[in-house]
C-alpha cells in the first residue's frame, strides 16, 4: 500500500492507505480526527471541509495520495487549547449550531471566507455557503456568526 506523508494541524504524519482512500478517511480512520464529518456522497454538503495549504476543500473529494506533502488544517487544529478561535467563539455566541454535525465544515469554510474577505456582507456570506448544507439552523444564526467571527478575526489582526 502506498504511504502518504503530510502535515496535519502542524504535526507530520505518515500513513499507509489504499490509492482509493479519501483524505477524509485518512483523517477520520487513520489519524482519529473525527471532527471532520461525512454527510453526503455527492460532494455537496460540506461537512468535510478542511483547509489544504490554506484553502478550503472538501476532504471527501480529494484522494489521500493527492494530499501528500500538503499542510492540512482540520477543526481540531483551530482552537488554541481551551481558547476558541474567534470564528468558533462567534458560532457559540450567536447560536450558529444546533446538532453540531455540519459545524466543523461550516467553521472551516467561514474561516477561509474571512481570510479572503475581512468584512463580508450578509449576501456574500450566503453565497459563500453554497457548498455547506445545514438542516438545523435555517442559516440565520450561522450568517450572523460568520459576520461576527470575520469582524473579530479582522480586529485581532
Amino acid at each position: 500500500m502506498p504511504s502518504v506523508t503530510l502535515t496535519v494541524n502542524g504535526k507530520q504524519a505518515t500513513v499507509e492507505v489504499e490509492n482509493r482512500t479519501l483524505l477524509v478517511q485518512l483523517l477520520r480512520e487513520h489519524l482519529g480526527l473525527t471532527g471532520t464529518h461525512v454527510g453526503c456522497d455527492t460532494s455537496q454538503c460540506g461537512a468535510c471541509v478542511v483547509h489544504v495549504d490554506g484553502a478550503s476543500v472538501k476532504s471527501c473529494t480529494l484522494l489521500a495520495v493527492q494530499a501528500a506533502g500538503t499542510n492540512v488544517l482540520t477543526i481540531e487544529g483551530l482552537a488554541k487549547g481551551d481558547e476558541l478561535h474567534p470564528m468558533q467563539a462567534a458560532f457559540r455566541e450567536n447560536h450558529g449550531l444546533q446538532c453540531g454535525f455540519c459545524t466543523p465544515g461550516m467553521v472551516m469554510s467561514a474561516v477561509d471566507l474571512a481570510h479572503r474577505n475581512a468584512h463580508p456582507t450578509e449576501h456574500e456570506i450566503r453565497e459563500w455557503l453554497e457548498g455547506n448544507i445545514c438542516r438545523c439552523t435555517g442559516y440565520h444564526n450561522i450568517v450572523k456568526a460568520i459576520k461576527a467571527g470575520a469582524e473579530a478575526m479582522a480586529g485581532s489582526r
Binding site: 460532494s43 460540506g46 471541509v49 476543500v57 472538501k58 480529494l62 469554510s109 459563500w128 453554497e130
Partner: peptide
Amino acid sequence: IGDPAVRNR
C-alpha cells in the same frame, strides 16, 4: 462555478 471548495480545486 460550483462552490468555494470546488473552485479551490
